[in-house]
Design a protein around this nucleic acid. Structure first.
Lengths: 215, 215
DNA sequence: TTGAAACTCACGGTTTTCAGTGAAAACAAA
DNA sequence: TTTGTTTTCACTGAAAACCGTGAGTTTCAA
């Protein structure tokens, strides 16, 4: 039986990495095999040191080169026995969802207490998954809001036209750009207005900007 | 002469706080008087413990109750002899500028190395200010871009009208709301269009949304 | 292969916006 | 006190957007 667990910590914030290391190095049952600043470094290490048994990888989401989601997916496909815990600042529902789909074993916030961190690690090493209450809530809300909102879906053309409208092009100009009739663009504009529940160009533009469709 | 410096650390992220504490507690010349999760806690402590001499307060920008900028302003006005260092994730030019105007003594990023952290602390305790190269760059760029842009300034009424336009109200509706003539609103709209260098409602709306005028 | 969704086009009528031009009154700053 | 800014209002003609209604074609999944 294993009396000590080997873990890897990855985070691009040096101070946070130091902090986490210093907290965990006080735990007798935990051995820190590697601290890394990118997901790529972690993968490289795992691929080379095939004889060393790693139990857990603790990782941030936002890292250069390879982010947390990619790293998790890679680990779970190449080394399915290794557990993963994400410790992140973010509470972005999309990213959290992506992580659960990548079968991450736990997720806690960076402003969690030390005790919660240790609790999460112990749970995961014990074979359970651990998600902090706040994260569970975000996940629930994401599911819930998806059901409540009829999920307005726009077609390719609609998106194309909407973007151009928000970029201040007139109907005629958009028609010329897309080699379509002026009437066609008018139809799209009309449909967009009714689909998105807005009243005019201002509403369409606001929708586009707020959804980050322009860049 | 002082052989040991007393410092306070404030950050709402428990793990980061632990990390910073564990790094700094290894330094013989540094004594950690308090670790806090909010700016308000720090101020309270400073006001009560008037006999204890604090040399440096290390703080994040984003904290509940009282943020880094507010905390800095308060410290500098009530306890001008206390030095301050901001350690933050953000590189938002506006916030950084606000901090420099609050006379913060240093600013480094959370992904700075431990060595840079210690360097910054030592510089500041030595009477110098310390801003990491990256932060200096952001500040320079902010200054530079401000000079290049003629700084479009809108009057109260213009802002009022612009907001309503971006909220999908028609000219007539805005006129009614503000008890003005339809013609007046038309004048404002026209001026806004030429002032902001846009072509139509879409452009006005984009400007308003991107400047965060709606909320 | 069949039906739904997406894509395309058309037209007449109404409302709103856009562009140009002008100007009076109030107010603050120099 | 003069100058500049802000706020307010007016009119016209052209352009664009908005509204309703209808319909042919393509495309893709069930």
């Amino acid at each position: 039986m294993n009396t000590s667990f080997s873990i890897i910590i990855a985070d691009d914030h040096a101070m946070f990495l130091d902090g986490l290391t210093s907290i965990l190095s006080k735990e007798k049952t935990i051995h820190i095999s590697l601290t890394a600043k990118t997901g790529a470094q972690v993968l490289k290490y795992l691929r080379i040191n095939t004889e060393e048994k790693i139990d857990l990888v603790i990782t941030d989401i936002n890292m250069p080169e390879m982010n947390g989601v990619e790293l998790n997916t890679a680990i779970k496909s190449e080394f399915p026995q290794i557990k993963t815990l994400v410790v992140s600042m973010l509470e972005d529902a999309k990213k959290i969802k992506a992580l659960t789909e990548a079968n991450v074993n736990g997720y806690i916030s960076k402003n969690a207490e030390k005790t919660e961190l240790l609790k999460a690690i112990k749970s995961i090493l014990n074979g359970e998954n651990y998600f902090s209450p706040r994260i569970k809530q975000v996940l629930m809300e994401a599911m819930f809001s998806k059901k409540s909102k009829p999920e307005i879906s726009l077609s390719k053309r609609e998106i194309e036209v909407l973007k151009l409208i928000a970029q201040e092009f007139t109907t005629q100009e958009i028609a010329d750009k897309l080699f379509l009739s002026k009437h066609t663009i008018e139809s799209y504009r009309k449909n967009l207005i009714s689909k998105l529940g807005v009243r005019n160009l201002a509403g369409l533009t606001r929708y586009a900007v707020e959804k980050g469709m322009l860049e």
